Simulated assay, not measured.
Amino acid sequence: MRKALLYIFIFSLFLTGCNETNNLLKSSDYDYKYEAAKQLYAEGHYNSASYLLQNVLTAMKGSSKGEECLYLLGLTSLKSKNYDAASTYFKKYNETYPKGIYAEEAKFNTGMALYLGTPEPKLDQTATYQAVNQFQQFLDAYPGSHLRENAQQCIFELQDKLVEKQYLNAKLYYDLGSYIGNGVNGNYEACIITAENAIKDFPYTKRREDLAYLVLKAKFDYAHNSVAQKQEERFNDAIDEYYGFLNEYPESKYLKDAKDYYDKTPIAYKRSTNN
């Protein structure tokens, strides 16, 4: 009879919306509300399920259902795309039930919530670093997990986003060129440092060639715009960069453009490399 009443409630909830939810929230039968929330979750009505679970969580604390209730709150938030709330609930679960039956999944889903909430590359990437760190914590805690490959793949994708941010920053510095807001040649120096750091931090990135070409361009332009007493040293550095680029990317899509940069180098500074 109780189960039948529950299904009647769920059906009426679909028909009448929030009024039925509000009526149920007034009930003191927390077990009934909890079962209704689980049924709503099973049916894919995550926002309604989350609303009810939040209402019963305190009452369920300390009971056999309290652990599952907290974990379900994380899941409903994750599936309703409320990623900040999801990560908070999953973290709270791991803090409250470090040896709980959902501890492994909660640890992984904390990372997943952060991963899904990361912004596009042109924006601040603090959340992306947090997501990488969380997945790494998961891998350290559960090295043999069946979710290991999923976590590693997410880390790779997050790293791609971090590299893309670095590439966009380096490209912006290069595009600003000799604009004196960052000092004479400051933008070229910033481009070189940013791109080289990205290559160092993420040596296997798919953006490696693009970053290397940015370094090459910036070094040649840096030399061209330098004062006379600094040009020889900086052109020689740019020439070294050119030959290093040819060696690493003999079939690069940038070969013609790279050669154009080299060909524009004053003859005096080519001599030391050719001899």
Results as ranks from 00 to 15, higher is better:
residue 232 E to D: 14
residue 225 N to V: 05
residue 144 G to F: 03
residue 182 N to I: 03
residue 191 C to Q: 06
residue 101 I to V: 15
residue 25 L to C: 07
residue 227 V to E: 04
residue 65 K to P: 01
residue 51 Y to T: 09
residue 72 L to N: 10
residue 197 N to M: 14
residue 63 S to R: 15
residue 94 N to T: 15
residue 244 G to W: 10
residue 267 I to T: 11
residue 133 N to V: 07
residue 82 N to F: 08
residue 168 L to C: 08
residue 1 M to I: 12
residue 44 G to L: 07
residue 82 N to Q: 15
residue 89 Y to N: 12
residue 215 V to G: 11
residue 182 N to Y: 12
residue 251 E to D: 00
residue 8 I to Q: 03
residue 190 A to L: 09
residue 121 P to S: 01
residue 138 F to D: 11
residue 71 Y to A: 13
residue 136 Q to S: 11
residue 154 C to G: 07
residue 254 Y to V: 00
residue 239 I to H: 05
residue 101 I to P: 07
residue 256 K to V: 12
residue 23 N to T: 10
residue 148 R to K: 14
residue 6 L to C: 00
residue 27 S to Y: 07
residue 207 R to K: 14
residue 179 Y to W: 07
residue 43 E to A: 03
residue 70 L to F: 09
residue 55 N to Y: 02
residue 54 Q to P: 00
residue 104 E to H: 13
residue 21 T to D: 03
residue 126 T to R: 10
residue 55 N to W: 03
residue 154 C to V: 11
residue 225 N to T: 01
residue 56 V to S: 01
residue 93 Y to L: 15
residue 212 A to E: 06
residue 21 T to M: 13
residue 188 Y to E: 12
residue 261 Y to I: 08
residue 207 R to E: 12
residue 53 L to D: 01
residue 121 P to Q: 02
residue 183 G to I: 01
residue 171 K to C: 09
residue 81 K to D: 10
residue 42 A to R: 15
residue 54 Q to H: 05
residue 38 K to F: 09
residue 236 N to E: 05
residue 265 T to V: 04
residue 267 I to C: 03
residue 242 Y to F: 04
residue 198 A to W: 02
residue 6 L to N: 00
residue 230 K to C: 14
residue 72 L to R: 14
residue 237 D to H: 03
residue 58 T to E: 10
residue 274 N to G: 08
residue 50 S to M: 08
residue 115 Y to G: 13
residue 165 K to S: 05
residue 170 A to C: 12
residue 239 I to K: 06
residue 50 S to L: 10
residue 168 L to G: 10
residue 207 R to P: 03
